[in-house]
Design a protein around this nucleic acid. Sequence first.
DNA 1: CCTGATCGTCGACAACTGTAAACACAAAAA
DNA 2: TTTTTGTGTTTACAGTTGTCGACGATCAGG
Lengths: 147, 147
Amino acid sequence: MESGKVSAISGSEWEVMRVIWTLKNVTSHQLVEIMQQKRQWSVSTVKTLLSRLVAKKMLATRKDGRQFVYQPLVTEMFAMSQTSLALFQDMCAMKVGKALLADIKELTLSKNDIDDLMQMLQAKRKTAPSEIACNCLPREHCCEGEQ
Amino acid sequence: MESGKVSAISGSEWEVMRVIWTLKNVTSHQLVEIMQQKRQWSVSTVKTLLSRLVAKKMLATRKDGRQFVYQPLVTEMFAMSQTSLALFQDMCAMKVGKALLADIKELTLSKNDIDDLMQMLQAKRKTAPSEIACNCLPREHCCEGEQ
DNA sequence: CCTGATCGTCGACAACTGTAAACACAAAAA
DNA sequence: TTTTTGTGTTTACAGTTGTCGACGATCAGG
């Protein structure tokens, strides 16, 4: 699994990142405490995840006295859109729209988000194709029915 | 990693599934051929993935003469929305809308999809909250700035 | 200066993934 | 019937992930 993007962090790593993104500058101690409260992880577990995130260049460390202060190297928004977009791009292009629809139906969005989304959609509509081909197969037969 | 959902299939498995979803009923031979063309995988690799997908209850097999015919046990749409929704639900609730916006900006959607999305949004707007709180931390301080 | 509390680093280990070779068995061909 | 070929099953092996305990360095107290 080699990529040029956001190093595809794993689930647990993502949880740690969220805390760091939110707090911006966190000492390992704070992290351990928060994660222990949030997920009952052992001290070691948190430390391991931090090391891995540093190795993956998602976090930078700054030594402050005896302990480290962690700091994100990519923004949360970047990671979020990067990750979700990658997921959608691995799916059938023809059905991505439907998946989005299902997601939006379930997710809680603010009025502002909704307005932004609608505006974006409105703009995209002008140049949108009327159909998108399925790209699940290399060439031959491709989905035709199954709307 | 235990879940009640869609067994979280991995990347390669997802690729195989896409072909099967599209073709509905596929013999291992076809699969091997397609995957070889699409990803240069060896025969063994494809077979391994198929076994694993059967083990994960994503595929059912029906013996047809010497070989097996594979058949999906969950619909593509279900898997797609399930998977993407799970991803979004692991992200900061406050920023999911922005991520969606970024995704939609990049993805190619058909006019119909766009219309459906807009309609959905319009409907949701009526009951949408004006703000959504960040849920990255257990309790204390939570993101306030960083729009 | 010695001692104990803190930290970060290493090493571990099982489960899951990506890839694939080896093997056993049945069917097709010779 | 013997050989070949097409199938599914087993085994393998390196990497990643989820979770930790142990170890060695360091800082704060006495």
